[in-house]
Amino acid sequence: MRRLLPLLLLSLTACGAEPAATPPPTTTTAAPYVRTPLDCSKLTVTPLTVEPGIGYIIGTHAEWLPKGQYIRIRVAITNTDSTFHTTRPTDYQLDDAADHPHQTSVDAMEIKRQPNELNIGAGNRLEMDLWYDIPVDTQPKLLRDNTCTTTIPLPG
Results as ranks from 00 to 15, higher is better:
I111R: 01
Y92R: 04
D129A: 06
H100C: 00
G68Y: 06
R2G: 13
V136N: 09
G121E: 05
K141M: 10
K42N: 10
W64V: 12
C15W: 10
T150D: 00
P6D: 07
Y56E: 14
D99I: 01
A17S: 15
L7I: 10
P155I: 04
T86N: 05
T138I: 07
G156I: 02
T104S: 11
K141E: 13
Y56V: 02
L7N: 02
R144H: 15
S105L: 07
P155Y: 09
N146V: 09
R72K: 15
C148V: 09
P89I: 13
L43S: 03
T86H: 03
G55Y: 03
P89R: 11
L10A: 14
T46E: 14
E51K: 12
S82Y: 09
P101R: 10
V34S: 02
A31L: 11
S105H: 08
K42M: 12
A20E: 06
T29A: 05
D99Q: 11
H85K: 07
D96E: 03
I77Y: 08
F84E: 15
A14M: 12
Q103E: 01
D129H: 03
I71V: 15
T46N: 10
P23E: 15
A122P: 12
T149V: 14
T138G: 01
V106D: 08
G121Q: 05
P115V: 12
T22S: 11
A108D: 01
G123D: 10
F84W: 14
T138C: 02
T86G: 02
C15T: 08
P155G: 05
T83F: 08
A122Y: 08
A20M: 05
R3E: 05
G68L: 04
T22W: 01
P37I: 07
L130D: 02
T104I: 15
Y92G: 07
L142E: 11
L38A: 13
T86W: 04
T26A: 13
P37G: 06
D39K: 04
F84G: 14
L5D: 02
P66K: 11
L94R: 05
N146Y: 04
K67I: 03
L5T: 12
L7R: 04
T36A: 08
H85C: 03
I54D: 01
C148Q: 12
P32L: 12
L7C: 01
Q114D: 10
E63P: 00
L10V: 10
A30N: 09
S11W: 00
T26C: 06
T27P: 00
L142A: 09
D95N: 04
L65M: 11
T90F: 00
T86E: 07
E117S: 14
D129E: 01
L4G: 12
R88F: 03
L126A: 01
L130V: 07
T22V: 08
L12H: 02
M128G: 06
T87Y: 12
S41F: 08
H102L: 13
R113K: 15
